[in-house]
Structure formats: C-alpha cells, structure tokens
C-alpha cells in the first residue's frame, strides 16, 4: 500500500479514539463494576444504574443541565441576532476589526471571567454602586451575585460570541435584494425579519445553538464559583463521587446519563431548527 494524502487521517483518528472514545467506553464498563473496600472490581452489576434510576437528585441535576443549556442558547440567540445583523452592515475593514473585538474576550481564561464578574456584580461592585449612585435603589441588590441570575448572565456572556459568529456567517449569505424586495412590497422591518431573514439564517442559528448548548450544558465551574447555593451541577456531583466518595460506578453512570440526555436534546434541537421552511430551502440548495 503506497502512502496517500488521505492516510494522514489515521494518526488523527487514532488520537481521537484513544483520547476520547476509549475513555467514554471505559466509562460504560466502569458503570457496571463494583466497589469493594475502596477497590474497583470488574463485575456485571446494575447497582449503579439502579441507584441512578431511582435518585430524584440525579435526575433533577441532569434536568438542570439541560435547562441551563437551553436557556443559555435562547438568551444568546435573542441577543445575538441584533448584533449579527448589525455586523452585516459594516464596511469590509470594520468587519475585520469586529472579528477581533468579538473574539478577544474568549481569549481570557475561564477563571479570569468568573473572577471579573464577581467584582462587577458584588454588593459594592460596579452595578450596585452605579444604581445606588443614580438613586434607583437604596440597598445593594443581593440577587446579582451567587444566584441563578448570575449563572444565566455569565453563561450567556461566555457563549454570546459563538452565537453571534454563527448567525453572522449565515446572515452574510442572505441576498440583500430579498430584504429590499420585502420592504418595497410593504413589509414592516419586523415582518421582513421573521418572514425573510430569520428563515434564511436558521442554518447559522442551528450551528450556533449546537455549539452554545454543547459548551454551556456541561459547564460546572461557573455555577460552582458564581451560583452560590444554586450552583450544584450534575458534573460537580460526578466529580464528588469520583474523588471524595470513591463511587466510580455511580460517577460513570451519572456522567453517561448526562451525556446521553444532552445528546438527545441537542439532536432534537438541531432537527427542529433545520426542519423550518427556510432552512430546508437553504440547505437543500447547497
């Protein structure tokens, strides 16, 4: 067999199989193992899965992960559309700059962003001081930090650039004349958006949604460092079972259940978005 360019796929595929698929497969095996005297013993036991099936906490946390992923997706989409559409109107030189402006906050470390938001939202932080200074509030708003609000805000912040990029790429491909035609024929801007722009950008919305959902649903750091009492996550529990409690079978089963649930929701979401009329027209054409 002589060497061909396509054979370069082999080392890459081997790395992904060894580094991603094998660990996930081992997770499946471990979920059937047993723990005896802090020793993981190969077995074919349904103990962990049984425990998981009847644990309301575990399913509550998995539901929470889904909810957090879906909410972040919806928030970034609502905020992302106006930004992406405004970006399409920039001159070419402005667009190059816009990419840098948009991507630079992503370069900051996970911990930097979390740390910065604590300073912005704290009792004596920027937002509270400003609002008190203007006289809108007398006492600092407590819900700003260590609450579900904080988690939603910071997850939206972390993922907004991905959504904007995806919708933007899609919006750039929409034929400007279609929008002009709609407007000339008497459509209000809002109608032009929902009847022309939105359907034609659903592929970008689908790509952005998938990205944002994948990145936010499994996130454990933001909730645990900024969510206060509401910051418990399925992955933090997995971490706890893995490290402190040394219950690897249950940790594996819970991680797999989470992964499977997220996968199902993501597929349903992508399927739903791509079934919209405009998406079919765009994707069908390519």
């Amino acid at each position: 067999m002589t060497f061909r360019q396509r054979h370069l796929a082999l080392p890459v595929a081997a790395a992904i199989v060894a580094g991603c698929l094998a660990p996930l497969a081992v997770l499946v095996a471990f979920s059937f193992y047993e723990v005896e005297d802090f020793e993981l013993v190969p077995a074919f036991s349904f103990r962990a899965w049984g425990e998981l099936a009847f644990s309301s906490t575990d399913w509550f946390l998995i539901g929470k992960a889904v909810l957090s992923g879906v909410a972040t997706t919806v928030f970034t989409a609502i905020l992302g559309y106006p930004v992406a559409l405004a970006l399409t109107r920039l001159a070419a030189s402005g667009k190059g700059l816009a990419v840098i402006v948009l991507l630079t906050p992503l370069y900051t470390g996970e911990i930097v962003r979390i740390y910065a938001w604590r300073i912005v939202l704290g009792g004596e932080g920027l937002v509270n001081t400003l609002l008190q200074g203007v006289g809108l509030i007398d006492e600092p708003l407590k819900f700003l930090l260590f609450s579900p609000f904080t988690i939603a805000l910071v997850l939206t912040y972390n993922n907004l650039p991905f959504m904007v990029l995806a919708i933007w790429v899609s919006a750039e491909m929409v034929d400007r004349r279609l929008i002009e035609a709609a407007r000339d024929l008497g459509a209000r801007p809002i109608d032009a958006f929902f009847r022309v722009i939105f359907p034609l950008t659903t592929p970008g919305l689908a790509a952005g949604s998938l990205t944002v959902f994948a990145l936010s649903a499994g996130e454990m750091l933001t909730p645990s460092l900024l969510g206060g009492t509401s910051g418990s996550t399925a992955m933090a529990l997995v971490d706890n079972l893995f490290g402190t409690a040394f219950d690897w079978p249950l940790a594996s089963a819970l991680a797999l259940a989470l992964l499977a649930t997220l996968f199902l929701v993501a597929s349903a979401m992508a399927g739903l978005l791509l079934r919209l009329k405009g998406a079919r027209a765009v994707v069908g054409r390519v």
């Binding site: 991603c20 660990p23 499994g218 996130e219 454990m220 997995v238 940790a251």
Partner: peptide
Amino acid sequence: VPKSVLSIAQAM
C-alpha cells in the same frame, strides 16, 4: 462532549 465529562473519563 463537555470538557468536564471528557476529563473525568480520561482521569479514570
């Protein structure tokens, strides 16, 4: 695959 799930599986 979420980074957290992947890293914990790799750690195991």
